[in-house]
Design a protein around this nucleic acid. Structure first.
Lengths: 339, 339
DNA sequence: CTGAAAGCGCTTACAG
DNA sequence: CTGAAAGCGCTTACAG
């Protein structure tokens, strides 16, 4: 492999070829508004094109103290975060920002390492997408030399935050099941340490307690994924599982539950109803199709970048923005035989 | 919002505080191996810590002509690419590389724009993850000032490429269905323009033609997603659909087919078998669970970064690396009543 | 083991 | 409308 030429062609070469100063070349190349004689401008443009000039963003960033980039820290790349990422990327592109992506893979200790790395790269802003379970407080605005925006419920570090009203989502979900006649509920969740899952449960309980009729709730916690969910519900079915409405804290949990019920020959929705959160793209094509609360992941991502841009421009940003989830009713919740 | 202090604390401040030259400060701060007197080193480290020094990666990159970053262009953030991204991010982190991410959203014209943007940022290498349908040739190694690696089948632009043997995957899939007794096949696909989907079909045909017994294949093409897939199979069911083995070019297509069959009261796998590609995380929890060919997406991503690193170091990289998909047999393909 | 100095490629007051 | 020059914050031969 031949060594790549050590000297890149620079704005100085462009200036020389165009017969102008570097200052002028810089102006036509990057200050659209700056007044430059038309023919001078053209000469510079031609020279740049001929030489195949590719401006060096690091040099530019160094000179301007601005990198036109944003750092994004995310826990994983599951469907929920993938949707968020898609919203972030589109908005970043729209604003001419490059997106630096870092994943914590559930190790929230890595979050600070990622933020530090982004800071070395002098990103203009940082987007921190919650791993819902982290109780740790990240650095606050004082220790953060650039604007940061949080997406998803997480400890209040003092940055603007965008999140979904999961209490309301849980409330809506419970009300939907209740309206179909259900009074005996089960709630499937990994852990109360995950804000979103706890909020959904709290919302459910809130509705039930305000409904003014007797009800029961069986809590299944420590449920990690679809496999866990499957096992727990399969076990329950063998031991007189009397809940008729299973509210799963995610569609993936719901999927495990649906599979367990199917294998136990329990009909959905005739015998028991199942409902989840996230409205995974696949959920409408399950049989029975899965009722779910659709989360505004893409919107939160796009809004996060928008806020970041505003903050970078020195504009004010709402301290807390709360979006709502939407009920997508499907076959898994009704018509229910008991109703 | 108070204006952020315009002057960041620099290595010069660290040097001054430590009572050494900038050169020495630089050496202890970024050349671990460089011989520096122990106490001098400590003074620099202390000064840096006290001042809260955060090295400026743009300045560093400018001086070293190296950014320690890689650009990644991806079509979307669906589950397949999300897995790939996860592999890329982990490998990049392991090598101390920052990942810049750009999405084309299916608009392959944007690929070149992304590459150009990455080049301005002077990434050390570029990973181009195929949108399988693009026939356009990207820039070749001559027009690419940094190493590039392609992931996924795409036109040969001359860069090292890592891909999955989809012909073999199609072959394996067909053989699996054949071994269960199926002779009448259907293949569901968006379009032959997508290399992966065409290769899977070609592999299937190759197996069938070599099997030495009569067979039939009904081709469903132009099938875009699960909704399309549902409609097409629902239609077929109404019009004497005689294939017994439905091979879908992705699990999402398979999902639509499964739903259509369920709604038409056609039993899977008793009456017809269904099989897909991708082995989506959910496929094992469908009822019937879905047999699928598992793609090495994460591995391809990780390997891509590995190759990039080698190329950046000037080491040779295999021109073409072909990984294999794995058969994950589940209920949707058997035991089949006809066998 | 340490330092002075040139250089990386751009931008931007400042002066004309 | 244009240019000379200083500066952004680091690295690295070169010399000692």
């Amino acid at each position: 492999m031949p060594p790549r030429s050590t000297k890149e062609i620079s704005i100085r070469d462009v200036a020389r070829t165009a017969g102008v100063s570097v200052a002028t070349a810089s102006r036509v190349l990057s200050k659209a508004e700056y007044p430059v004689a038309a023919d001078t401008r053209q000469r510079v443009l031609d020279a740049a094109a001929t030489l195949g000039f590719v401006p060096n963003a690091m040099a530019r960033g160094l000179a301007r103290s601005r990198s036109d980039s944003v750092g994004v820290v995310m826990p994983w790349t599951n469907a929920y975060y993938a949707a968020m990422m898609s919203g972030i990327e589109a908005a970043a592109r729209a604003h001419g920002l490059t997106m630096l992506l870092g994943l914590t893979n559930g190790d929230e200790g890595r979050r600070e390492a990622l933020v530090a790395a982004f800071l070395e790269r002098r990103v203009d802003g940082i987007l921190i997408c919650a791993a819902a379970h982290d109780q740790r407080l990240g650095r606050g605005p004082e220790e953060m030399p650039v604007p940061a925006v949080l997406i998803g419920r997480q400890p209040d570090a003092g940055h603007p935050i965008i999140r979904t009203d999961n209490v309301a989502a849980g409330h809506t979900a419970a009300r939907h099941l209740w309206s179909l006649g259900h009074r005996r509920f089960a709630y499937l969740t990994p852990d109360d340490a995950w804000y979103d899952f706890r909020d959904r449960r709290v919302g459910m309980m809130g509705f039930l307690e305000s409904a003014g009729e007797p009800f029961s709730v069986e809590l299944f916690d420590g449920v990690r994924g679809e496999t866990d969910s499957y096992r727990r519900i399969a076990d329950a079915c063998r031991n007189g599982f009397d809940a008729t409405a299973i509210l799963a804290s995610t569609d993936r949990h719901a999927l495990g539950a649906l599979a367990a019920l199917a294998d136990a020959r329990i009909l959905v929705p005739e015998d028991k109803a199942v409902m989840g959160f996230d409205n995974y793209i696949t959920s409408g094509f399950l049989r029975p199709s899965l009722t779910s609360m659709s989360m505004p992941a893409t919107e939160m991502g796009a809004l996060g970048v928008e806020y970041l841009r505003q903050a970078i421009n020195g504009d004010a940003v709402p301290k807390e923005t709360i979006l709502q989830a939407a009920l997508i009713a499907r076959q898994s919740t009704g018509p229910w035989r008991g109703a």
